[in-house]
Simulated assay, not measured.
Amino acid sequence: MPADAASLAQAHVRIARPSRDLAAAERFWCAGLGLSVLWRIEGGDQPGEHSLLMLGWPEATWHLELVHDVAEPVAPRPTEEDLLVIYLDGPVPDDLVARLTSHGGARVAHSNPYWNTWGTTILDPDGYRLVLCTRAWPMT
């Protein structure tokens, strides 16, 4: 593996998305899934002044960044293939699914039967899909 590819393989990943309601998103991702607030910026009501919420597990190599601009909001436009997949390497806990749905999520069937076989799909408050997968990563 070339040196640049090796360093990229260790790089931290940010997944950025617009959000309609950062408070609702925070309830889902933090109280529901168990992520922590890593950073928060409260924006104003002028164009370009956006509110920002960064969520993740402090020790993870990725985080989720949610952005909302009050003056010029960007509507989330998720498709069925915009997935955040978490590989659990075991059964999806019923209490986790219940916690996610009680904090603003909605359990849905996925149009791809693979995800229905190997996981549970939950819509977040902005309509993006979180898949809790029973498989391990890397897959063997």
Score class of each variant (00 low, 15 high):
Val92His: 03
Met1His: 00
Glu81Arg: 09
Glu72Pro: 06
Leu96Phe: 09
Trp39Phe: 14
Pro76Tyr: 12
Glu80Ser: 07
Glu80Ala: 08
Glu26Met: 08
Glu65Lys: 11
Asp126Phe: 07
Ala24Arg: 04
Val108Gln: 01
Thr140Trp: 10
Leu96Met: 10
Tyr114Ile: 10
Asp45Glu: 08
Gly43Tyr: 05
Gly127Lys: 00
Glu59Ser: 15
Arg40Trp: 14
Ala3Pro: 00
Gln46Thr: 12
Arg77Trp: 02
Tyr128Arg: 10
Pro18His: 01
Asp89Leu: 08
Gly56Arg: 00
Leu88Asn: 01
Ala98Glu: 15
Asp82His: 00
Phe28Val: 06
Leu96Asp: 07
Asp126Trp: 05
Ser102Trp: 04
Ser102Asn: 05
Pro113Gly: 01
Pro125Arg: 03
Glu72Tyr: 00
Ala23Ile: 14
Leu53Asn: 05
Thr61Gln: 13
Val85Gln: 15
Ile86Gln: 07
Gly32Met: 09
Ala98Arg: 15
Gly105Gln: 06
Gly104Asn: 02
Arg20Pro: 11
Pro47His: 09
Val92Ala: 02
Arg129Asn: 06
Pro113Leu: 02
Ile41Gly: 07
Pro73Leu: 10
Ile86Ser: 13
Ser19Asp: 01
Trp137Phe: 15
Ala60His: 01
Arg17Tyr: 03
Val70Met: 13
Gln10Lys: 04
Val97Lys: 06
Gly104Val: 00
Trp115Leu: 02
Leu8Pro: 07
Glu59Arg: 13
Thr134Phe: 02
Thr117Gln: 15
Trp57His: 10
Trp39Tyr: 14
Arg17Phe: 03
Ser111Gln: 06
Thr134Glu: 08
Gly56Trp: 00
Asp21Cys: 04
Val97Tyr: 06
Asp124Arg: 12
Tyr128Met: 05
Pro91Thr: 14
Met54Tyr: 13
Glu80Cys: 08
His12Tyr: 13
Ala75Pro: 05
Ala60Tyr: 03
Val74Pro: 00
Ala24Thr: 08
Val108Asp: 11
Glu49Asn: 13
Val131Ser: 03
Pro138Ser: 09
Ser19Thr: 05
Val74Gly: 08
Asp4Tyr: 03
Arg17Glu: 01
Glu49His: 13
Asp45Ile: 04
Gln10Glu: 09
Met139Arg: 08
